[in-house]
Design a protein around this nucleic acid. Structure first.
Length: 577
RNA sequence: GCGGCCGUAGUCUAGCCUGGACUAGGACGGCAGCCUGCCACGCUGCGGACCCGGGUUCAAAUCCCGGCGGCCGCACCA
């Protein structure tokens, strides 16, 4: 039996998580979290919040936006266009392929994103595209849209989607939060919430889900001031850069942040900063340094919105290296898209000390050409184009042949450029975005797998004390002579302090220790006969089984300090040495 | 969606091939109680299961069909 199987069995048996709707046979891709799982997940979320929000609360804030999101938002974000996969099956060998990929490979055509199933099918027929494996004939193209779709309001034509990432909620409300945060950059907007992706066939238990919790942060900064003031460049990153991945060499480099930036392995300082935090965060979940690394995503496997992506992967016993977070450099892609679709100005204004003369490239929309191609959307596009940073538009048109903005493509025929000199008192720009994004359920599972130990045929979950679902258990040594009463009293006292505690008087003392170890309770407090004489109890450490005797009045503080650990470990450290 | 394997108490499993004595057995866990001066002690007792539907048969956990679900592989995983 693999560790994964044991963990899954334990998860089910002791109430961490299990497959949802089991009553009706279950559905893959959905999980129920039981009492312990919910506690564990909450603690992991809390730890994420510590590292990614509280630590930088001066400029990072947490918000909450809805799961159901209007069609327009995901059209603007590019998800409607890019989140749909077109599949085609070989009629001879039965293999399935991404239709657009096969066509691109065999015909050299590109820019197929906007096409329908019918159009792709007819290209296959016309250009005689064959199965790349066996040369057989291909069938008709079928669409897979990974967005969960619904209608907003009953009997309504108003299509909405369940969000596949929380990010769009942060982008669409960026200007308000920016304003509330008194117009300052850098600004981080964080969110923890449910997202949904209608995966074709989710497997691997808690690893690939159709509905899961994302912990995401969008950091907005001025592209002209890209330095991250909280970054320590001496920190070391363990990563596999893009060119190694391209060569299929997955040996991680251990480089300082300074070096990673100098060699352009990491695209921007903020991304590097969050990667450093991500390592610490994941390490604190009990996953050692050498069991995690960052792997660059190649251009073709990157999300449509990102110019650089590193996946943070951790080694799992059964499933290999599994992504637990993605670190994407999204530039101004998303805000730009929402500007084009909404026609609103999402730029940020920065005032100069004094008026200065600048020379910049301005975009001049060619109104007739845009009207011709985009009809009713033209006015929003024209408006947005005028607000786009000229250099970037020019550059992208040069390199890709078009400039993309919220599902619209701007080709050379749509714009002209003009270099202008002018005196200005400030500048308007679209912020750049660096995004770390974590999957909570995968971290829950990974922390359980790394906590899993067996000792003398007993199972112990050695969670780091600060993520253990239950913080302490109170036990009377025997069930007589007033010991249970005293133990209950202590239980009540700890519980009143807001600690997650359990009381257990069933079976022998050894059995109760074992029961607590199995779900990772870090401290066991035992009331014995000496307690009745001098108001002391024994505190047992889950991992070493060592015990120390402490005064009851000191207990709440000791337990609190121990389970919170951070920077406070000294007073308790002594106890178990 | 395709192919292979599979579905029995909370968990793990025996039984299925060869239909009937299966009132479905065991282990672990749970609960109640006794016992218990520190690592799953022992004793007594109590609950608890054949994925769903149809068929064959005198008789189905067992055979057949369909459905649902799971695991593995293919594909997919922005």
């Amino acid at each position: 039996m693999s560790v994964a199987d044991k963990v899954m069995e334990l998860a089910k048996r002791r109430g961490f998580f299990w497959i949802s709707a089991e009553l009706y046979g279950g559905v893959s891709g959905f999980l129920d979290f039981g009492p312990l799982g919910k506690l564990l997940k909450r603690k992991i979320e809390e730890k994420w919040r510590y590292w990614f929000v509280l630590k930088n609360q001066e400029f990072v804030v947490e918000i909450e936006t809805p799961v159901i999101t209007p069609y327009k938002v995901f059209e603007a974000s590019g998800h409607v266009g890019h989140f749909t996969d077109y599949m085609v099956e070989c009629l001879k060998c039965g293999r399935k392929f991404r239709a657009d990929h096969v066509i691109e490979e065999q015909t050299g055509l590109s820019g197929l994103e906007g096409l329908s199933e019918e159009q792709l099918t007819s290209i296959i027929t016309e250009r005689n595209v064959k199965c790349p494996e066996c040369g057989g004939q291909l069938g008709t193209v079928k669409k897979f849209n990974l967005l969960f779709q619904t209608t907003i309001g009953p009997y309504s034509e108003n299509v909405g989607f369940a969000r596949p990432e929380a990010a769009q909620g942060m982008f669409t409300t960026f200007n308000r939060v920016y304003n509330v945060m008194r117009n300052k950059l850098p600004l981080g907007i964080a969110q923890i919430g449910k997202v949904m992706r209608n995966e074709i066939s989710p497997r691997q238990g808690p690893i690939r889900l159709r509905e899961f919790t994302i912990m995401e942060l969008e950091l907005f900064y001025d592209p002209q001031e890209p330095s991250c003031h909280v970054l320590d460049k001496n920190e070391v990153l363990r990563l596999v850069p893009e060119d190694s991945v391209a060569k299929k060499d997955l040996t991680p480099l251990e480089v300082t942040v300074e070096e990673a930036l100098r060699k352009r392995l990491v695209a921007c300082e903020w991304l590097a900063y969050f990667m450093v935090l991500a390592q610490k965060f994941v390490q604190e979940l009990g996953i050692p340094w050498d069991k995690q690394m960052f792997v660059a995503k190649l251009p073709q496997e990157r999300a449509h919105y990102a110019t650089q992506v590193y996946d943070q992967v951790v080694k799992l016993e059964k499933w290999g290296w599994i992504e637990v977070s993605g670190h994407a450099f999204r530039t101004d892609y998303d805000l730009r898209g929402h500007m084009a679709s909404s026609g609103e100005d999402l730029r940020v204004y920065k005032q100069f000390q004094s008026e200065v003369e600048v020379e910049e490239v301005e975009v001049r929309p060619l109104v007739d050409a845009i009207k011709e191609d985009y009809e009713t959307d033209a006015s929003a596009i024209i408006n947005a184009l005028k607000m786009m940073p000229g250099e970037r538009v020019l550059e992208e048109i040069k390199s890709k042949g078009f400039f993309e903005m919220g599902g619209y493509r701007i080709y050379p025929k749509h714009v002209s450029f003009e270099k202008v000199k002018k005196n200005v008192k400030g500048r308007k720009f679209i912020p750049f975005v660096a995004e770390p994004s974590f999957g909570a359920e995968r971290l829950v599972y990974a922390s359980m797998e790394y906590a899993y130990r067996e000792k003398d045929g007993r199972v112990i979950l050695s969670f780091p004390p600060d993520i253990a679902p239950i913080e302490a258990v109170v036990l009377p040594l025997v069930n007589r002579d007033g010991l249970p009463e005293k133990a209950r009293e202590i239980y009540g006292m700890l519980s009143f302090r807001g600690l997650v505690v359990e009381y257990d008087d069933s079976g022998s003392i050894g059995r109760r220790y074992a029961r607590a170890d199995e779900v990772g309770v870090p401290l066991a407090i035992t009331v014995d006969y000496q307690t009745l004489r001098d108001d002391t109890v024994t505190v047992r450490d889950r991992d070493t089984w060592k015990q120390v005797r402490v005064r009851i009045e000191k207990l709440p503080e000791i337990v609190e300090v121990y389970i919170k650990r951070r920077e406070l470990k000294e007073p308790l450290k002594k106890l178990f040495e």
